[in-house]
Design a protein around this nucleic acid. Sequence first.
RNA 1: GGGCCUAUAGCUCAGCUGGAAGAGCGCCGCCCUUACAAGGCGGAGGUCACAGGUUCGAACCCUGUUGGGCCCACCA
Length: 875
Amino acid sequence: MTELDKTYDPHAVETDIYADWESSGVFHADPDDEGEPFCIVIPPPNVTGSLHIGHALDNAIQDAIMRRERMLGKNAVWVPGTDHAGIATQMVVEKQLMAEGLTRHDLGREAFVERVWEWREQSGGTILKQLRKLGCGPDWDREAFTFDEQRNAAVKKVFVELYEQGLIYRGNRLINWDPHLHSALSDIEVEHEEVEGELVSFRYPFADDPDGGIVVATTRAETMLGDTAIAVHPEDERYTDIVGREVRHPFLDRTFPVIADEYVDPEFGSGAVKITPAHDPNDYAIGERHDLPMINIFTVDAKVNEEGGRFEGLDRFEARTAVKEALDDAGLLIEVKKHVHQVGHSSRSKVPVEPMLSDQWFVSVRPLADKAIEAVRDGRIRFVPERMAKPFIEWLENLHDWCISRQLWWGHRIPAWHHEETGEIRVSHDDIDEPGWVQDPDVLDTWFSSQLWPFVVLGWPEDTPEMRTWFPTSVLVTGYDINTFWVSRMAMISLWFTGEVPFHVVHNHGMVRDEHGKKMSKSFGNVIDPLDFIERYGADALRFALFQHCSPGDDVPLAEDWVEGARRFANKLWNALRFGLSNLDGVTPGDLPPADELALEDRWILSRLEAARAAADAAYDGYHWRNAATTLYSFAWDELADWYLEAAKVRLYGDDEVAKATVRSVLARVLDDLLRLLHPLVPFVTEKLWRSLTDSPGGAESLAAGEWPTPVAERDEAVEHQFAVLQDVVTELRRFRSQNDVAPSKRVDVTLVSSEQELLEPLAPLLTALAGIGELAFADSAVEEEGVSKVVFASGEAYVPLAGLIDVEAELARLDKELDNARKALAGSEGKLANESFVERAPEAVVQQERERRDEWARRISELEERSAALRSLA
RNA sequence: GGGCCUAUAGCUCAGCUGGAAGAGCGCCGCCCUUACAAGGCGGAGGUCACAGGUUCGAACCCUGUUGGGCCCACCA
């Protein structure tokens, strides 16, 4: 038997335990292993990133699921890997260059990409090492990268085939332009933020009547440089005569028509809208309907280009001011007023996005999205919690075509070649090395490659044993925030290419926030660094604190105090096992003794164990981490440690060898099962303790490779009720002691009168030990004597003689003093209430409070007097 | 503008299909009792947001109001 220190020290065990797991191969699985297949693929973190608290939660959950599934005997694999994270990684390296006073253009494309690879070599894999600190055990032999050779080939294949199927096309369409990154973005990379802007009204003069004209309003005055029409509602009577007339652009040499379109809201502003088809999604739609010219007025920096006449060269915000001034000078400006509206910002660079016409690559999403919708509707993909399915489906229903090309350098190069002269396009899996053909410079949206993740990590497009065994995967664990970015795309592309859902279950968790539900942010100073917490409290403590507050779909608040509390729990377990080990006398977990040898407390703890086991199983099955954690916490602490271990001491410290053997087997069994049940949540401490517990010939080597507990006994309601009676008596007697300041070391003589006498009598040794009883007697009726206190409990009463228990003189003195104070307070309160001016002038609430205070003191005084009288009768 | 979630102790939250208000932390008191003082025992503290309704009975179901939070969206 291993000697355990008095306190659990995570540092002393975590590293060694993890090394054992890894070298034992418990994390590794092969397709032809025994057991029902079970598979999770990790949401690949950014290869150059480091572990933040959100990763910790996401991966702790996956690890817990994996550990339990392995213990259940499944052939379970967890595939790890990392993402090249296109924009994010490129931005990091560009920032490094900036510090050297360089831009990526100074290096050139090839050298820049080389530089990113260097950075990847240097920092890559850090995050996976950090996952080990957390106790996570994916199958390290299967590590994948979204940008490795095998994954590249799959990406090309998917692109080429979608192109051949007509589902990828190149088009000149309105896209979201990031003027900082100089790249297109997809719709979901745009975040809408409310900003206080302005609504500028001005007049467009008629071409044939410069003094007349039509008033329009805009939040972006500079876009008037790209206006090619004015639109009004067709049924707006104010404008029926004007539709069809031409207006003249005040600063540019062109005229354009007033058109009628249903889109216009006659109630808003003047009821007339300026139309800028190249820089606004609505206007673009109108432009298409009316075949309007689409004039792009910006450069890639969002500066006014040559279409802007004298405003050329100004950036969009300078141009906004300049245009307003010019309108004012021309006498066309009507008014400028404040206006709160939503403005799209790049989720990457945070600058306002510029809608622009641009040649880009798009995925036609409709046919793919329909398959994904169907799969969620018919339950082939199930969300936990279910409520996540509805917004998911609605999002897919309204999905627009996906712009997948990015004007970046770090990522999968688009496998398309343009002919320099003819402009012809060829898409090909193999490089085209012919004169006149150059490869498209763009790379793919990072989600284009990560959408393939669940099957490319299993070897797709090859027909591998891994694909046949583990695909579709079992469950995807991820925050709800990337359901649209990633989960939706995996569902679509997997159904399209493999004909299967990528995973049967999507388990969404929430975001980790601070203890008040606030988002963690550096500027707010409430960021929790998981590695720092692991260092200070241990990995189990961090994991357990997260699990204690985690339920499907809900955000997870986390506070340092709670991690400290979880650490104490680990320590409590540690000490419970220490107690067990020092009393088991070599007994290891095995079969239970015959039922007739079991004491009430044995049957009680076994029944409670079964309750906890069933509840934990249900919680685990439903990914209800909080329930699993609190159920097991409460079983371990409130029932096992506080009651059973205390009760067990009676027999363990006695000299009945049969009874000792019985309690030892029960204790070993309960501790063993508890450690198993807790192992998915707190793997290190349970592994360490379990090895000590089973440290005997024939004992298994690792809890991680152990079996999941099955029922050892049935729930027994009668036994639980009987034990509850005992607990009730003990608790009442303890309360009596506490209220009378009877020292724990002092034995009290007790006479019980109870309807449950038959039950309680055989429990006398237990009662005596747990409640600190000296002489225990039973009586049929109330014991009415002087100086005897009555204690009431559910099934009866107890009578406790006070003589000898309490230092009567000292207690009386104390009571007198307290009485004195109370009487003074009561007098003060009564005096106040007798004061008419107080009662009349003070607010009613204050007077009421004073009355309550008076009544409270009166109650207290009568209590003290009663008690004082009882004591005096003793003296 | 649409949708979702939420309102229970000082804080963070449990309360499953309606059947006598719970936990952890914090607070107060007593104890170093031989697993654990990082502990034990006891205690205080809630008109379950508000207003109606259904019911023998409502924290829970229905309606409305108000307060928080989140997501989606092309109203100039």
